[in-house]
Design a binder for these strands. Structure first.
Lengths: 106, 106
DNA sequence: TATTTGTGAAGCCGATCGGTTGCGCATGTA
DNA sequence: TACATGCGCAACCGATCGGCTTCACAAATA
């Protein structure tokens, strides 16, 4: 089963989990308190996020603390870059056009 | 069926379509040439993207040109902002810590 | 030691996904 | 008028999703 970060953030619950554990490491039970679904479902989401290599985990006794590897969010940012680039190019062209029009006017 | 932009970009084919029609408007047939799936599948993807209000379309005779409303990509960018903010805060705190350490040293 | 607590894994289930084929229909063209 | 083309829609299908319940097991606690 091939997973990627875009699939990871497709689910709204998973997005909310990511935001939670971006700030601080949390246990599955701790996370589950914020939602109306079972602890096991949360665990399943954490497993998916782990498979995307988005999580760091640290065991403390019988508790496991999960935290977002926040720098992984850059992958999305990088994907967005192509659109920013296109927007930028259009802006440049528009600028060029305005410049040309202005010169014609004179 | 509730759709959002995060679900829209979850599928790799859909992401590729978005990139294609970000540059210029294209017909379903034109888009389909770039993929190994049927024209109908492409249409299905376009429908999903439309439901997320990501597309502008223009009819020309029997052809329909689809184009990405590129500014809609900002929604993803805005979601990423929360993580940027957290990173920034950590950087500030680190800076503060280094400053404190430096003063103690003196 | 016996019990409680925190966790992951497995199996179930209805809903959805992402592809397919087979239409119907409007628009161009011979 | 007849035919070809471009398109959307509906039905089908196997795979996956995102919940759930049940279980096993290790760690903490009585």
């Amino acid at each position: 089963m091939r997973r990627d970060i875009f699939q990871a953030i497709a689910d709204p619950t998973r997005r909310a989990i990511l935001v939670l554990i971006a700030v601080q490491a949390m246990t599955p039970n701790g996370i589950a308190e914020h939602f109306d679904i079972t602890r096991q479902s949360i665990s399943k989401h954490l497993r998916i996020l782990s498979e995307c290599d988005l999580l760091a985990q640290k065991q403390e006794g019988r508790e496991i603390f999960y935290e977002l590897k926040i720098e992984k969010m850059k992958e999305i940012d990088i994907w967005l870059d192509q659109f920013r680039k296109i927007i930028e190019e259009r802006f440049q062209n528009l600028d060029q056009l305005l410049f040309t029009l202005k010169n014609k006017k004179k």
